[in-house]
Amino acid sequence: MIATLFLGVGLMAAVDEIVFHQILAWHHFFDRSTPTIGLLSDGLLHSAELLMLAAGFYLFTQLSRRNAVSRLHAWAGFFLGAGGFQLFDGIVDHKILRLHQVRYVDNLLPYDLAWNGFGALLLVIGFALWKWAKANTQTVVRGSQ
């Protein structure tokens, strides 16, 4: 799960950085300074995202070579990582630290609800898959005894 948790965090950070920072230009990672600092902060986020993806792919490849991948655990880790990143960004970065907002509009509530709601949905999917994987693992272990 750790390998795909890294992949989930990295992929969600990539989607955020590419779609919302670059294509839509709704915000930078750090919007409380000059545009140059905002662009630099996006580059640092992009670097961190690439490190997460590289680490996740490396770990996943090592597990795959040993035939040690549980598909349900892998998907659970992916969704937990993606949802965890999304919700952390929405609550900590947007609201607590105020590094940036989803979008700079008069009525921010629909954007916040959509952003955090999507993160929560991904987490719920991840937890459900994790519980299902755990139950299937226990069934397999009990069945082999």
Rank of each mutant, 00 (worst) to 15 (best):
F57C: 13
F20R: 02
L39Y: 01
D42L: 11
W26E: 05
A48R: 01
S33F: 06
D89T: 07
W26D: 05
Y58V: 13
L123W: 12
A82M: 13
A55R: 08
A14Y: 05
L51M: 13
T36S: 03
F60N: 11
G43T: 11
L113G: 05
T139A: 15
W115R: 00
F127C: 03
V92Q: 09
L59H: 05
W26N: 07
Y104R: 06
N67Y: 01
I37P: 02
G119F: 10
H21M: 07
Q138D: 15
E17N: 09
L59T: 06
A68M: 08
F127L: 15
L97T: 00
F118I: 15
A68R: 07
L24R: 06
S41C: 11
S47T: 06
W75Y: 11
F88Q: 03
S33L: 08
L44S: 03
D93C: 14
G8C: 13
V69R: 08
H21I: 07
N136W: 10
M52G: 05
R103F: 05
N67H: 13
D93M: 15
G10Y: 09
H28N: 10
F88E: 05
W75P: 05
G43P: 08
V19F: 09
F6R: 03
L39R: 10
R66F: 01
R66D: 14
V105M: 00
K95G: 04
L44R: 06
I91L: 14
H28V: 02
R66N: 10
H21V: 02
E17Y: 00
P110E: 02
M1H: 13
I2Y: 14
D42K: 09
L59P: 01
G81T: 14
A114S: 09
T34W: 01
G90W: 06
P35G: 00
F118W: 14
H100M: 03
G10D: 10
L11E: 05
D106H: 11
I2W: 15
V105H: 06
D31Y: 04
R103M: 12
L39Q: 06
A128H: 05
H46Y: 04
A74V: 07
K134I: 00
L72D: 15
S41I: 00
L5P: 01
G84P: 02
H21Q: 06
F29K: 02
V9A: 14
L108D: 00
L80Y: 10
A14L: 14
D106N: 09
V124H: 12
A114H: 13
S47D: 00
A48C: 03
Q62M: 10
R103L: 08
A68C: 02
H27A: 02
H27D: 05
I125D: 01
R142G: 08
R103C: 10
Q138E: 15
M12E: 12
V102R: 01
W115T: 04
D112E: 08
A135C: 04
Y111Q: 09
T34I: 00
V15L: 15
T137E: 15
K131M: 08
F60C: 09
G38C: 06
L51S: 04
D42R: 10
V105Y: 04
Q145F: 12
Q22R: 13
G119E: 02
H100P: 08
T61H: 11
D112F: 03
L53T: 04
L109Q: 07
V102G: 04
R32Y: 06
I37D: 00
F29M: 14
